[in-house]
Design a binder for these strands. Structure first.
Lengths: 348, 348
DNA sequence: CTGTTAGCGCGTTCAT
DNA sequence: ATGAACGCGCTAACAG
């Protein structure tokens, strides 16, 4: 492997000069610089990033620790992060936390050990992990989920408001026993979306009975089981608000398996879009998140934090959008079956 | 940040001893070792992986450069890789090549600069990239796609056979004008699956007319446009074999938009499963790949290659499985509409 | 079994 | 504007 000394020798300059040419921190005689650059090309010299990192005490790598690589919500997020990172001269490495605290811990450890430049994480619960990062002086941005009791830059959506809007829409559509399938109590997102659901019911003068609420794990199977449990109740719901995309898929599967027609016998609104939502029959009404922009916002916060480690931490909240499709509209005022945006004759 | 010297000083030993205790390469007096370990805990000492990598001239990171993080085919693959990597003591960083040669190049450069321990890549075409890696002595495994003219460990599925089976199934179902939507000519996977399609037609004594073949980009939009182009032909097909999952989704969308009933007026078989295939109506027949095992196989090859850089390169080929669902079965022998595995009353 | 010494490849002083 | 010297933190070679 060719080193900076090989380049220096062939170009007949010192290693310092080569370093200066490559990093442009100090001015170098143009002729020398040209000679160096030519030799770099000739020898196909590639600076050793490991040595550079050791010397500079920082790398140009960001760790993005997401909680489930299989969830399409995160893929768009990652694109947003990557685009900003590249502009700022960082490379992004993805770490699949997999909603598994142990895996997540391993990746946090790795990010620390590799002295990465920063971390963007959607924490699956434990505030201790975030603390380990911040205490080590690692620039951190939390995304999608609000860590408890830790001052850290955070990017969220208006979970309460989004859930409220979705639930209000179900009420307006004429559903009367509206259930909610939400995520683990330790995850802020699950709690906030449940709260929005409850507020909407109260605002409409309804009670928010606990027997219509289920706590699952944000996964497909969890959604399926929660829905099954709701349907087995003495008085089953006639609509359900599900607080993430994978659980929504599970809930719909359950309804299909039991032959319960959507939206006629049971209305459904999910949180997070799912890909190919338009291919699913009935097409699913969802609270859509600006995932790409969430990624961009997180990345921007991280670059700022890296540039200025002392600045006060901030929270950015982005707006959600209710996308009404078929699964939540029982009928139009004139009595015809609904065909909302994204309906059978969906526009491309 | 506490260093190995801090630990050495407090434990009243030399830095070498601390290193030996931590790495276990050489035996150390049990009492000393215990003392060192205690100090490590007390000080919360974390070895600097950057310094270690510089000194050892290798890291414990694998780069996994996948061609599209949004394609669920890869997510399961990644899990397989991660599981094996962890057993072997490596961490996996994911790089999203995004079917974009420029991005891919950047990540290959980064993997080289960071002196990563190895690379698993699904190359989006350019053999030059693989060459850059191997010439630099980087252990490499190609996955999903066969690089041209480069001797490198590779993990594939039996693309020709899988495509042949799928096409034969369409023939057996009574379709007569069977089209094929395949991927870019530069990607081996696209070529092989097309060849399987052609072989099946010839084996059935049919010609394989070029006007029923379309080359697209392995993405949803490409599949949509290819299908549209087929339907605009003078003699449109009555069935289509699509060589990857995202294009299959696009093709079905196109059929839905034009009101062409599947499988009645047009049969469809795709390659690669798609998630929630069971929620899509009609449910899609596909050639399923053992994605998790593909990942495991690639990771195993990489560990072997790292352990023995001189060994001859090998190719592992895994079998695919045809999953017949609704989209490819026009009717049962008795004339009733089909309800295959994964049909409306799908078993969980 | 342990400590001393050296050097991985760079970037950054400090002189000149 | 340039070069010499040093050290980032660690592990491997060598002595003892």
């Amino acid at each position: 492997m060719t080193t900076i000394y090989d380049v220096a020798r062939v170009a007949e300059v010192s290693a310092s000069t080569v370093s200066r040419v490559l990093n442009g921190h100090s001015s170098v005689d143009p002729d020398l610089a040209a000679r160096v650059r030519q030799v770099v090309l000739d020898l196909d010299y590639r600076p050793n990033a490991v040595a550079r990192s050791l010397r500079r005490q920082r790398t140009s790598l960001w760790a993005v620790i997401i909680s489930d690589i299989g969830n399409p919500f995160f893929t768009s997020l990652v694109r947003g992060i990557e685009d900003v990172a590249q502009e700022a001269g960082f490379s992004v490495v993805l770490c699949n936390g997999d909603e598994d605290p142990e895996k997540e811990t391993r990746y946090v450890t790795a990010a620390l050990a590799e002295r990465m430049a920063g971390v963007i994480i959607s924490p699956s619960g434990r505030p201790a992990l975030i603390n380990r990062l911040t205490e080590a002086g690692m620039p951190v941005v939390a995304i999608d989920r609000q860590p408890h009791g830790v001052a850290v830059d955070t990017v969220l959506v208006d979970n309460v408001h989004g859930a409220e809007t979705a639930t209000a829409h179900l009420i307006d559509s004429g559903y009367r026993r509206i259930a909610c399938v939400t995520g683990p109590r330790r995850i802020s997102t699950a709690v906030q979306r449940l709260r929005g659901y409850q507020q909407a019911l109260r605002a409409a003068g309804r009670s928010a009975p606990e027997d219509l609420v289920r706590y699952a794990d944000f996964r497909e199977d969890g959604g399926y089981r929660a829905m099954a449990s709701l349907l087995n109740a003495a008085e089953p719901p006639d609509a359900v608000f599900v607080t993430n995309n994978l659980m929504t898929v599970g809930a719909v599967e359950c309804l299909v398996d039991r032959g319960i027609a959507v939206p006629t016998r049971c209305g459904v609104v999910g949180f997070d879009d799912i890909p190919w939502a338009h291919l699913v029959r009935p097409s699913l009404s969802t609270v859509a998140q600006p995932t790409y922009d969430l990624g961009r916002a997180a990345a921007s916060l991280l670059t700022e934090r890296i540039a200025n480690p002392a600045k006060a931490s901030s929270t950015v909240t982005l707006r959600t959008t209710l996308r009404i499709r078929e699964s939540s509209v029982r009928s139009l005022p004139d009595g015809q079956p609904a065909a909302g945006a994204g309906g059978p004759a969906r526009a491309r």
